[in-house]
Nucleic acid binder design. Structure first.
Lengths: 191, 191
DNA sequence: CGATTCTTTGAAAACAGTCAATCTGTGTGG
DNA sequence: CCACACAGATTGACTGTTTTCAAAGAATCG
């Protein structure tokens, strides 16, 4: 399982064997069953998860009891609540598995430590951070500009591999639409 | 004008005098008049701006010719298009001044250089990046969850000082609402 | 097979956007 | 200093989109 993570790293940066060892020493491999949670609302987020296999999602429940999905994390993506990690305050989010998953968990303290000790790992982290911010901005762009149909087309073009892997109502939730609206949008897109 | 920037830095990190000199040597002070642009759509973004005084905004024009505001940058905020900076592709955004402003411009190459040479400056940059991502996520949260009225309340609580500084129709644009809807929301809030 | 979960559909209601007109305040140039 | 233009804000009537509610139809899983 760790091999997936090593491969991911090796595609981004070059590390010495001993640096891999340092990283490996703080990696905790974990299997998560479908529907199992790795974090609950109200907890303080103290670790970061890397998805080797499977699929996580981050969501929250609003005052009406409705779910809203903030993020999907399939293979080679990271998951965790940066806000809670940074602030030390309880998270508003839940993270659970949409499929049986293999993940690697790194404790915040360990993560900070390897960022300090391995500069290129730190660079990699920053590059990921920057990319995340760009993605978030694009999502904001879409959400303040697009109609329901355009939002769905945007999702299709952006995450074609997720469309058949995620239940439709979760895509709707991710896009800020009702499930019924998304169903109708799909029906009316050409024939 | 550089003093504002130095003060900003000193509140985040501790630097030696010579490190300040290095930074200062790449800072370009600039005055921008209201309505003047510092970046146009179609250009590749090659610099980062720090606002010492005044107010910048980042916006784009959609296919219908309507403006949508991505970001406001008042004093002590940064402005620039990370996406274009990272990718080297032309930007979709325009950046102009909403008030006569004093800004400090740093070229991308210089910025990268000081990040490399001054580790704590790099740490500061990362911290800002992380915070930006959290803010972006909160905005996504708001936009997929809230009604027009809730979005306005959110803006009020988050940026109380901007409310009386930004024309209302720009707040509407930032929130993804029509100007008329925002006007009615304001009218119907209490009495 | 029965139980869930997911998706679709229809009808009605709520919500937000559009269009057009008016009103307000501000600043500029003559 | 006034007249005028201009940017901004408001209002009403209307349109269109999206949500809500309720029900029923698929699909999946144990």
């Amino acid at each position: 399982m760790i091999e997936v993570f090593k491969k991911y790293i090796s595609e981004k940066i070059t590390l010495a064997e001993e640096e891999y060892s340092i990283i490996e020493s703080v990696c905790i491999s974990r299997k998560v069953k479908k529907r199992q949670f790795i974090m609950h609302e109200g907890e303080v987020c103290k670790q970061i998860a890397f998805v080797c296999k499977g699929f996580l999602r981050t969501y929250f429940i609003d005052d009406n009891g409705d779910e809203h999905i903030m993020n999907f994390a399939p293979e080679n993506y990271w998951s965790g609540d940066r806000e809670s990690l940074m602030s030390g305050f309880p998270s508003k989010y839940n993270i659970d598995a949409l499929e049986d998953s293999d993940i690697i968990v790194i404790k915040k303290a360990d993560f900070d430590e390897i960022c300090k000790r391995i500069p290129s790992f730190n660079d990699m982290t920053n590059a990921i951070l920057q990319k995340s911010l760009v993605v978030a901005q694009q999502r904001i762009h879409a959400s303040i500009t697009y109609s329901a149909e355009e939002k769905y087309n945007y999702f299709l073009s952006k995450y074609p591999s997720l469309v058949n892997r995620v239940p439709q109502h979760m895509i709707a939730s991710y896009l800020g639409l009702s499930r019924e609206t998304l169903s109708r949008v799909r029906k009316n897109r050409l024939g």
